[in-house]
Amino acid sequence: MTTEPEVLLERRGEAGIITLNRPKALNALTHAMVREIDPQLRAWARDDGVSRIILKATGERAFCAGGDVRHIYDLGRAGHQDQSLAFFRDEYVLNHLIGTYPKPYVSLIDGICMGGGFGLSAHGSYRVGGERYLFAMPEVNIGLFPDVGGTHVLPRLPKASGIYLAFTGARIKAADALHFGLLTHAVPSARLPALEAALVAGGDVAATLAAHAHDPGPAPALEHEAFVAEAFGHGDVLAVLEALDAAAAGTSASADFARDTASSLRGKCPTSLMLAAEQMRRGPNLDLAGCLQAEFRVVTRVLHGHDFYEGVRALLVDKDNAPRWQPDRLEHIDPAVIAAHFDPIPDELVFPIGPS
């Protein structure tokens, strides 16, 4: 029986092309995929015949639905956190490589883009969304936190939209993502093959993207944008909830939205929410490397804790949707414990110098 490769790497025209190739698994990112992509990107950086990178995926449902959290769960339950951390270490190094890549890096995102898929695309030069684009960072649902550089990207989005996405795990489509700046262009799904062919042929990347782009229509987020900016601009989770509760008790146009959002937040992992808030506070003062180093410190501690395994158990293993978080209330969380997640660790994340 022939096993399909998990990732396809090819040189075509002026482009180095990476194709995520696990459509039945929603192109979830594995350690093996990371280990294949990283050295090839470094080789293409040195290849004068490659003038741009194209990242895409097979299948119509997902670009990349995240990392393989069930595998990470199984490793941790067996006491092999070191293997899980090796994956995160290599993944974060790859995220940094993408964010500092010396050539245009174009992601063609048509389908679900979450977690690890965000890490593979968000730090590149250009992010193109098709009609099936669906983005979320839902880590707070499973006792994790919005990593893979979320600390760098999300707090820099306008009008507290990134804080809203980090806290709620809300799903958004291309129009909202373009409005927020997560996408640089929107292109109809049917035109993505023509865009890829044009990129392969060479020429100015920005001009090629502009020639194929279209207007996906008004962003639905505009309806509550001013309210989100005010409520989530606090950054502090308890202050956000207080603002949401106050609005929910009123008669403004955002009352129902505030009520639903507050209810959603109260269903998230309390420690994850507090970690996300600390990420959003620290991120604006750190470069991408600093953000990823901070995230590696946090994930090292999270993988040796309780909530991640409980969240995955409740949502993905037993599927009872009844996680028993520790602590189980935001008010019971010690801010010093959250801050300590970001303290230095003996085996810090370090990055190779340059793309070689």
Rank of each mutant, 00 (worst) to 15 (best):
P146H: 10
P146G: 10
W325R: 03
L265T: 10
L273G: 12
G169R: 04
A258C: 06
F180K: 00
S356G: 14
R156N: 05
H224C: 00
P270M: 14
Q293H: 10
S121D: 13
G162Y: 07
T19D: 01
H214T: 13
Q83K: 14
A194L: 06
L199H: 03
F227K: 01
S264I: 13
A340Q: 12
T151P: 00
D256W: 09
A62W: 08
H71A: 14
P193C: 03
G129H: 09
I37E: 08
A166R: 01
T208C: 00
L244Y: 07
R42Y: 02
T271D: 05
V7D: 05
H31D: 11
S252W: 08
W44F: 03
L97H: 04
L275E: 11
H212C: 00
A174R: 13
C269K: 12
I338L: 01
R12H: 07
V140T: 15
D287R: 15
A239D: 14
A276V: 08
M33H: 01
F296L: 08
E14D: 03
D38M: 02
A206I: 00
P23I: 04
P284G: 12
T2G: 03
L182F: 04
F351S: 06
R301S: 10
C291I: 11
V106F: 00
A122T: 07
V237N: 00
M280S: 13
V187A: 01
A25L: 09
P158R: 08
D147C: 08
P104T: 13
R282Q: 15
V205R: 05
A248C: 10
F167S: 07
A65W: 09
R132L: 04
L273T: 13
H304K: 12
G311C: 06
R297E: 14
I54V: 15
D328E: 05
V187S: 01
P155Q: 04
L94D: 06
P218R: 11
L303I: 13
D287E: 15
E6P: 00
G162N: 04
T100F: 11
D48G: 06
Y101N: 04
K24W: 06
A219T: 02
T3W: 07
N141W: 09
